[in-house]
Deep mutational scan, measured.
Amino acid sequence: CSVCSEPIMPEPGRDETVRVVALDKNFHMKCYKCEDCGKPLSIEADDNGCFPLDGHVLCRKCHTARA
């Protein structure tokens, strides 16, 4: 995971895991958050999703503030 540096592995008792890929980086679902404010990001293409800027994973509000 690009945030916590832990491997993305299935939880005990499970055969599969879910990971998020954004900007060629891999994330646990729980680690997929705005780099500035820490708001959890949605994997859907909506207002709560990722608004990347200069290689950073940001929420819409933080993207607008940086732009």
Rank of each mutant, 00 (worst) to 15 (best):
L53W: 12
V18S: 15
K33W: 01
E16A: 11
A45P: 13
C37G: 02
E44S: 08
V21D: 15
V21L: 14
A22M: 11
S2V: 06
G49S: 09
F27D: 02
L23W: 05
C34F: 00
K61D: 13
R66L: 09
C59W: 01
H63I: 04
V21A: 15
G38T: 09
Y32D: 00
A65Y: 13
P12L: 14
D54P: 00
A22T: 07
P10N: 13
T64V: 15
L58R: 06
P12W: 02
E16F: 02
T17Y: 15
K39L: 10
H28N: 03
P52H: 11
H28L: 00
K33P: 01
A65T: 13
I43D: 12
M9V: 12
L41T: 01
S5H: 03
D15N: 08
E44M: 05
C1W: 00
G55H: 07
E6V: 04
R14S: 10
H56S: 12
Y32R: 03
I8F: 03
E11T: 15
D36N: 09
G13N: 04
V18Y: 10
C4E: 01
K25D: 02
E16R: 07
C4V: 00
L23M: 08
R66P: 08
K25H: 02
V21E: 15
P10L: 14
C59E: 01
A22H: 06
E11Q: 08
L53Y: 13
M9K: 05
H63W: 06
S42P: 11
D24V: 01
H28Y: 01
C50R: 04
V57F: 06
E6A: 12
H56A: 12
S5P: 00
T17N: 08
A45V: 11
C59I: 00
V57I: 10
G49R: 13
F27W: 02
K61Q: 10
A67F: 04
G49W: 03
C37F: 00
H56F: 07
K25Y: 03
L58K: 03
D24P: 02
V20R: 04
P7I: 13
M29G: 12
L58M: 10
L41M: 12
G38M: 13
C37A: 01
M29A: 15
D24S: 13
P7H: 04
A45S: 14
P52F: 10
P52N: 06
K33I: 10
G13V: 08
Y32L: 11
P12Q: 10
N48K: 14
N48D: 06
E35H: 05
D24A: 08
E16I: 02
P12D: 15
P10Y: 12
R60W: 04
A45G: 15
F51D: 14
T64L: 10
D24I: 00
R60E: 15
P40S: 14
M29Y: 10
A22L: 07
L41F: 09
E35R: 06
F51M: 14
L53N: 11
E11Y: 09
P10H: 07
C31A: 01
M9I: 07
S5A: 08
R19W: 03
S42V: 03
D46N: 15
P52V: 14
N26T: 13
P7Q: 01
R66D: 04
K33A: 08
Y32V: 02
F27T: 04
E16Q: 05
V21P: 13
S5N: 01
D47H: 09
V20A: 07
R19Q: 08
K61W: 11
C31T: 00
K61C: 11
K30Q: 12
A65S: 12
N26R: 09
C1P: 00
P7E: 14
I8D: 00
G13E: 10
P40K: 12
E11A: 08
G55T: 08
R19G: 09
D54A: 08
V21R: 14
H63P: 02
E6Q: 10
L53M: 12
D24M: 06
R60K: 13
G13K: 08
N26D: 13
S42K: 10
C34P: 04
D54L: 07
H63Y: 07
I43T: 13
K30Y: 08
A45K: 15
D54I: 02
A45M: 10
V57P: 08
V21Q: 11
V57A: 14
E35W: 05
E6G: 14
D47S: 10
C31H: 03
T17F: 07
C62P: 01
V18D: 15
V21Y: 06
V3P: 01
E35Q: 08
F27Q: 03
K39F: 04
L23G: 15
K33D: 03
V57S: 09
S5M: 06
S2K: 04
A45T: 10
L58A: 03
P10M: 15
K39E: 11
D15L: 08
A65W: 07
L23C: 12
P52C: 08
N48S: 14
A65Q: 14
G13C: 03
A65H: 14
A67Y: 02
V18C: 14
L53Q: 05
L41N: 02
G49P: 12
P7V: 15
S2E: 05
P10F: 13
L23S: 12
A22R: 12
P52D: 14
G13Y: 04
C37L: 00
C4W: 00
C62W: 00
P40F: 09
S2N: 09
S42L: 03
C4I: 00
V3E: 04
F27G: 01
T64E: 13
R60L: 07
E11K: 07
V20M: 10
L53P: 04
T17M: 14
F51P: 06
R19D: 10
K33Q: 10
I8C: 03
E6D: 11
K61P: 11
D24F: 03
